[in-house]
Design a protein around this nucleic acid. Structure first.
Ligand SMILES: [Mn+2]
Ligand SMILES: [Mn+2]
Ligand SMILES: [Mn+2]
Ligand SMILES: [Mn+2]
Lengths: 219, 219
DNA sequence: ATTTTATTTTAAGCTTACTTAAAAATATTT
DNA sequence: AAATATTTTTAAGTAAGCTTAAAATAAAAT
């Protein structure tokens, strides 16, 4: 399948899995930076290939075959991120940018080589789970959004769900990374702000950030 | 530039540099597996972009700009081959196959990271020189074809210039690889065959092989 | 419930990268 | 030198993946 098709399928998968908005052509188009008309066209074409179900004006739904393809691409994306992050001195934003291209030019054979070399990791450097070669995610995710945490409790950062450079730069600057410990010192419900303590520093985060930072409570 | 354009430019570069046949659309078409008509079309298009000079019925010649582009792609190709060969247990044929795709989705930034990680190597696993980030090949190649060697002398294999799986499998089986030592025991000029000795084994190679295996004399 | 706004779809058109078939030019053989 | 074969070019056409503009439908606001 072409890069265009793969990115389209992946965008549907991710929108369905994580984003609040409904999986209609317009929202996918927005993510991919193409016109609504192009997205509708593509949806019809992929329906004819049994990768998704399309009914006029309804949400797009991946078929079993479409989901498998999405997970295969996600696997390659996250394996590349893991490899680049391990070998080279690259930021989370940079590895994502390169992986976005490399994912489409990677044989299953090479993906398995990368995976084996890394010791078949279950998570990428963002904390996102890496599907296995059968397209299965075997890990269970119990993490919650930072916005849902309680003041006074401590947490481990488990996931930075973004691909925005500014966000990653901010995180890197303040030590907000996968595996690091933080303490929630205040939840300002009305203002949708969360105050945390990390490395003896106090930072105040708005909901744009607290909704994409995931954590696990320390017991 | 697109993958099609990059492969076209690279094919011209390689044909010019190594292959005996003249650099006309038909020969490039043959290499790329496209029709002569498609090659002529592409040649005209690239001429309009100042990547090559095109005159009806004449040979295609890369401009300075076109050569730079070719060397940039060759660099990425050979860096990928070097990385994959080092990290994973992959054959010369396999690394070439993957590099053929990855080369088109690699930023200069990433290429430099790969190069630095490998210690800025000057040769890839086939013995081909790796251009630097300015598109320059600084090494001098004094190697000769195995077909041009003399009986009774010893040589080091410096280059396996091919991308054919059968050839590589044969080489791997008999220890014919970059850096290994061989002795030429007989040159059968009339029959265009060369007999060599390697690892206490004697093998007889025809010109298909002796023309793409390059060696350096041991003094 | 009606009007207004937003989204989705259709329609027409563009570029890239190919194809096959026929015409033109070049290269080879006799 | 002429005939033949090969190669290159032109011409016409296709599929993928886009675009913009207009029409149809759905969602939101009044
Ligand atoms: Mn990513
Ligand atoms: Mn991508
Ligand atoms: Mn190669
Ligand atoms: Mn290639």
């Amino acid at each position: 399948m072409s890069t265009a098709v793969e990115n389209f399928i992946k965008a549907i998968y991710k929108n369905d899995k994580h984003d609040g908005n409904d999986t209609k052509p317009g929202n996918i188009a927005k993510k991919l930076g193409i016109s609504n008309a192009a997205a509708t066209d593509m949806a019809k074409k992929l329906a004819s290939k049994d990768l998704l179900n399309y009914e006029k004006y309804q949400e797009l739904r991946l078929t079993e075959k479409g989901s498998k393809m999405a997970l295969n691409i996600v696997r390659k994306h996250r394996l590349w991120e893991s490899l680049l992050f391990k070998l080279f001195d690259m930021s989370l934003h940079e590895i994502h940018r390169e992986a976005e291209l490399l994912e489409h030019q990677t044989s299953d054979f090479l993906a398995n080589k990368i995976s084996a070399y890394l010791g078949n990791p279950k998570f990428d450097p963002h904390g996102d789970p890496i599907p296995n070669e059968h397209g299965e995610i075997t890990t269970v995710d119990n993490s919650i959004q930072l916005s849902q945490t309680q003041a006074g409790k401590s947490y481990i950062i488990s996931r930075l769900m973004s691909d925005d450079k500014e966000f990653f730069d901010f995180c890197a600057l303040h030590g907000l990374k996968f595996g690091n410990r933080i303490m929630v010192t205040n939840q300002f419900q009305n203002n949708k702000m969360t105050q945390i303590s990390i490395n003896y520093n106090t930072i105040l985060l708005n909901e744009d950030f607290t909704n994409i930072i995931y954590v696990n409570e320390i017991n």
